[in-house]
Nucleic acid binder design. Structure first.
Length: 317
DNA sequence: AAGATTTCCAACCGCCGGCCT
DNA sequence: TAGGCCGGCGGTTGGAAATCT
């Protein structure tokens, strides 16, 4: 036998927003008699409401220990961390935030945090970097790059080292960079053989390990080592991209060109499912020089255009 | 200024597990 | 053991408020 509804439709109980008068009746009753037996409470309190509705109103709104106002950064961080461990267990998460209700936390997650994580390139369900193509394209747009709008690419603006940028923009760009690094690092197509760690991990590792308001653990040195297995060609440019998929008609970029541009294209290509292999001796510092070029715009607009078109074409297939 | 669209959140809905008989 | 009841939980929604065009 199925569960009997708490309040059946024909009983004529009121639904929708609570009035101040109803709130007062409920608070008055609970202050005198306490909680308990929500089913019979409405009648005893003189309310034409379902018991469940009364309980919800009390626990989510009227309870005297409820904290009002915006969530603090500390609370936000805590929610994200707890969610990464507990998932959508809002009531469990709420037990760690005194004065906040599960409903409030759930709403805050769905309206703020979720979007924020997506913008940062983090999957809010798994708390791992997003690697889907749509996101990759969004990333390029966030960085101010578009294959349709290369002329408008603000070269200086892409550089997070630029002191003219405000701190928020700098952090955003650094986070995007970190996400790209993580995409490279976490993609199964990447080989991790032949690690040869360079003792001079570069400027960027400083960013990766800094705590400028970042919410997530940043790539560990070992991750950076794994990335460093990618190699450079005789001209000192990063390569290791080897496209073996000849069935794809949209991919007609000459092989040499692919190598030439791979220092920027790598995350895109890896994300697109390309095989990445290593042929040469690893060189961490050269690899990161590549990333610095990416940031400082040492790549030509035409390189970017080809790369982005490739990714976008694949996305529409 | 006004209509359209988006954002936000209080409240609802249905399911589940625990307890009681 | 099965049925009934209750409280709790997470997903979803309606509509007010805010923002955009």
């Amino acid at each position: 036998m199925g569960r009997v509804p708490c309040c059946d439709e024909s009983s004529g109980v009121k639904k929708g927003p609570w009035t101040a008068e109803e709130d007062e009746k409920l608070m008055d009753y609970i202050s005198k008699h306490g909680q308990g037996n929500w089913r019979t409470l409405p009648k005893r309190a003189g309310l034409n409401r379902c018991g469940k509705s009364c309980r919800l109103r009390w626990t989510n709104y009227l309870r005297p220990d409820i904290k009002r106002g915006k969530f603090t950064e500390e609370e936000e961080r805590l929610i994200i961390n707890l969610h990464s461990v507990l998932g959508n267990k809002w009531s469990k998460i709420a037990t760690h935030l005194p004065g906040r209700t599960d409903n409030e936390i759930k709403n805050f997650w769905n309206t703020h945090i979720r979007k924020k994580l997506l913008q940062m390139g983090i999957d809010p369900e798994t708390h791992k970097p997003r690697t889907d193509l749509n996101h990759l394209i969004n990333l390029t747009h966030l960085l101010g790059i578009s294959s349709n709008n290369m002329a408008a690419w603000d070269k200086s603006n892409i550089n997070p080292l630029n002191p003219q940028l405000d701190i928020t923009t700098q952090i955003t760009k650094i986070q995007l960079l970190q996400n790209l690094l993580q995409i490279v690092n976490t993609n199964p197509y990447l080989s991790v053989s032949g690690i040869n760690h360079s003792p001079n991990p570069l400027q960027l590792e400083g960013y990766a390990n800094s705590n400028v308001g970042l919410l997530y653990p940043q790539p560990h040195a070992q991750s950076l080592e794994a990335i460093s297995t990618l190699s450079t060609d005789h001209g000192g440019r990063l390569c290791g991209f080897n496209n073996n998929n000849n069935n794809n008609n949209n991919n007609n970029i000459p092989h040499q060109k692919q190598q030439y541009s791979s220092e920027m294209a790598l995350p895109a290509l890896v994300s697109a499912g390309e095989q990445v292999s290593t042929h040469h001796s690893p060189d961490t510092s050269t690899f990161f020089e590549g990333w610095e070029k990416f940031l400082l715009d040492d790549a030509s607009a035409s390189d970017w255009k080809e790369i982005l078109e490739l990714v976008e074409n694949r996305n529409t297939e």
